[in-house]
Computed example of a mutant assay.
Amino acid sequence: MTRKKKEIEKMSKDSIENGDIQPSNVENAESKNVSVSADKEKKEVEEKQEIKLLEGEEQKVLEYHDLDDLIAKYNKLKESTKRDKEALIKYQKESDSWKNKHMRLQAEFENAQKRWNKNRQNLRTEYTGRTLKTFLPLYDSFKKALDGDDENKAILKQFYDQFISILKFHKAKPIDVKINDPFDYSNHEALSSIEKDDLPNNSIIEIIQDGWKLDKDVIRYSKVIISREPTPPE
């Protein structure tokens, strides 16, 4: 029992003995005083708890704003950022490396595809030229027959025209050569030469056999006889 409560009880006893108050009133007063005292104590406890809580929050704020702690956290964040940046640079280099490899492989593939297409076209032209070349003697026979006095010249002419159409369909054409044209090593084959003083040297004076081309490739050279300068007398 607290000191204050004892004083209240003593005062109550004195008042009762003197007849100032009734016992029931004393009990009510005591109960009221006890309730007020309890509320006051409860309030004091709550105030102390609140003060303690505030002191804890202040301590946390002080700890959070501690300079050494802030510097340590900054350095840690800086180091983490540095590692992330280095990792990003590494991945960027790897990405660029793979990109360059992909571009090189793509370029190599495209070049290989172009070479393959070119080789295929060259092989096709070569095989077509070889095949057409085997039919050129037939062309020579047709032409020789048409130059003669054969009774069936009209029929031969029809076969000849059909044969020429087949050759042209495969992009084959005769080499254009005329008498007195200069000799061309890329299109002509000289079978012999004859001395001529009225013509320039290496002029075509006779066509023995027509030459043929497939596109730009020669499949048979024109066989010709050319002129040469006369040998000066001794």
Rank of each mutant, 00 (worst) to 15 (best):
Met1Cys: 03
Met1Ala: 05
Thr2Leu: 15
Ile8Arg: 09
Met11Trp: 13
Asp14Thr: 12
Asn18Met: 13
Ile21Trp: 08
Ile21Gln: 03
Ser24Thr: 13
Glu27Asn: 13
Ala29His: 09
Ala29Tyr: 12
Ser31Pro: 01
Ser31Ile: 14
Asn33Ser: 12
Val36Arg: 10
Asp39Val: 14
Glu44Tyr: 13
Val45Cys: 07
Glu46Asn: 08
Lys48Gly: 08
Gln49Leu: 10
Gln49Arg: 14
Glu50Gln: 10
Ile51His: 13
Leu54Gln: 15
Glu57Thr: 09
Glu57Gly: 08
Gln59Gly: 00
His65Val: 03
Leu67Pro: 12
Asp68His: 07
Asp69Val: 12
Leu70Gln: 15
Ile71Gln: 07
Ala72Cys: 09
Tyr74Thr: 06
Lys76Ala: 00
Leu77Arg: 08
Glu79His: 14
Glu79Ile: 06
Ser80Pro: 00
Lys82Tyr: 14
Lys82Glu: 14
Ala87Met: 14
Leu88His: 08
Ser95Ala: 11
Asp96Phe: 10
Ser97Ile: 08
Ser97Asp: 13
Trp98Leu: 14
Trp98Gly: 05
Asn100Tyr: 06
His102Ala: 07
Arg104Met: 06
Arg104Tyr: 10
Ala107Ser: 12
Glu108Lys: 10
Glu108Phe: 07
Glu110Thr: 04
Asn111Ser: 05
Asn111His: 06
Gln113Gly: 06
Gln113Lys: 13
Gln113Asp: 14
Lys114Arg: 08
Lys114Ile: 08
Lys114Gly: 02
Trp116Ile: 07
Trp116Lys: 11
Trp116His: 13
Lys118Ile: 04
Asn119Val: 10
Asn119Gly: 04
Arg120Glu: 13
Leu123Arg: 02
Glu126Met: 12
Tyr127Gln: 04
Tyr127Glu: 03
Gly129Ala: 05
Arg130Met: 15
Thr131Asn: 05
Thr131Ile: 15
Leu132Pro: 01
Thr134Ser: 13
Phe135Arg: 03
Phe135Pro: 02
Leu136Thr: 02
Leu136Trp: 01
Pro137Cys: 02
Tyr139His: 08
Ser141Tyr: 09
Lys143Tyr: 09
Lys144Trp: 10
Lys144Phe: 06
Asp147Gln: 15
Asp147Arg: 14
Asp149Asn: 12
Glu151Ser: 10
Asn152Thr: 00
Asn152Val: 03
Lys153Asp: 07
Gln158Trp: 11
Phe159Gln: 07
Tyr160Arg: 11
Tyr160Pro: 00
Tyr160Thr: 05
Ile164Leu: 11
Leu167Tyr: 00
Phe169His: 07
Phe169Ala: 05
His170Asn: 05
Ala172Asp: 04
Ala172His: 04
Pro174Trp: 04
Pro174Asp: 02
Ile175Asn: 01
Ile175Leu: 07
Val177Ser: 04
Lys178Thr: 13
Asn180Tyr: 15
Asp181His: 04
Asn187Trp: 06
Ser192Ile: 03
Ser192Met: 06
Ser193Asp: 05
Ile194His: 00
Asp198His: 11
Leu199Gln: 06
Leu199Trp: 01
Pro200Ser: 09
Asn201Ala: 09
Asn202Glu: 12
Ser203Ile: 04
Ser203Trp: 06
Glu206Lys: 11
Glu206Trp: 11
Gln209Met: 08
Gln209Lys: 15
Leu214Gly: 01
Ile219Thr: 02
Arg220Met: 02
Tyr221Gly: 02
Tyr221Ile: 01
Ser222Pro: 03
Lys223Val: 02
Lys223Asp: 07
Lys223Ala: 04
Ile225Ser: 05
Ile226Ser: 00
Ser227Trp: 03
Arg228Phe: 07
Arg228Pro: 01
